[in-house]
Amino acid sequence: MANLLEITNLHANVDGKPVLKGLNLKVEPGSVHAIMGPNGAGKSTLSKVIAGHPAYEVTEGSMKFEVNFKMKDLLEMEPDERARDGVFMAFQYPVEVPGVSNETFLRTSFNSISKAQGAEEMNEEQFRKFLQKKMELVSMDPKFLDRAVNTGFSGGEKKRNEILQMAVLSPRLAILDETDSGLDIDALRIVADGVNKLKSPDNAVVLITHYQRLLDYIVPDFVHVLADGKIIETGDKSLALKLEEKGYDWLLQ
């Protein structure tokens, strides 16, 4: 099967300092990948580079994404173009945006994608109905719709809001950057349920995580170890259990 995402020999700098140093990753539709690794390995950098954060500079390598059976060069695309083509990153630290209501934000986002795909945009009423179903998926109280995006939300509420956005936008590639960190077990279950319900043979999920715990709820097809800017080991879900037990040292030596 053709790949959804192909990353080849990716090098990237942050503030002029190399963080990714020749990373390779292939993601097929319908698959779940987990990326684990010690602090400072470049996990968050990877997610930001895929999403197109302007502060991260790609110096070498390529990053291709399948759109309508053609591999498009993600590096040539603006972050909002990537999002419109189905790339989604759930932020590790979702940004508080005061003054912009969560509902307006979600609708504008949803309609930007609809417009790009030639689909009809939804009006306020249609969107609210659509949104209600998605909110049930992540057990979110409707009162969060009128509040400003993430403003005054607890850590868990912010993470759930990211999953809600994912549910609304139905991305083809979802990268969850430490979405599990800071969540208690109930919130973790809700987030995992949300992700599991969104899985389909057409889309793929990349979970960036420190903890094996999340993988009890979202079962990965592949587990990768990212260290010093490269993927140094790939295995199935048993690799995560081994890492939990032994740590990373045995791989780094």
């Binding site: 502060a55 972050p79 909002d80 945006v97 005061p98 003054g99 912009v100 504008t108 986002s109 930007s112």
Partner: peptide, 28 residues
């Protein structure tokens, strides 16, 4: 710029993102 990136990562074009953020600042 982190606010702008967040909105762009959700498919909102840059000009629209700036407008939304300015509006948000004012609507407060």
């Amino acid at each position: 710029p982190e606010h702008v990136f967040y909105l762009r990562a959700r498919a909102i074009p840059e000009a629209e993102a700036v407008k939304m953020l300015a509006n948000g600042f004012a609507q407060d």
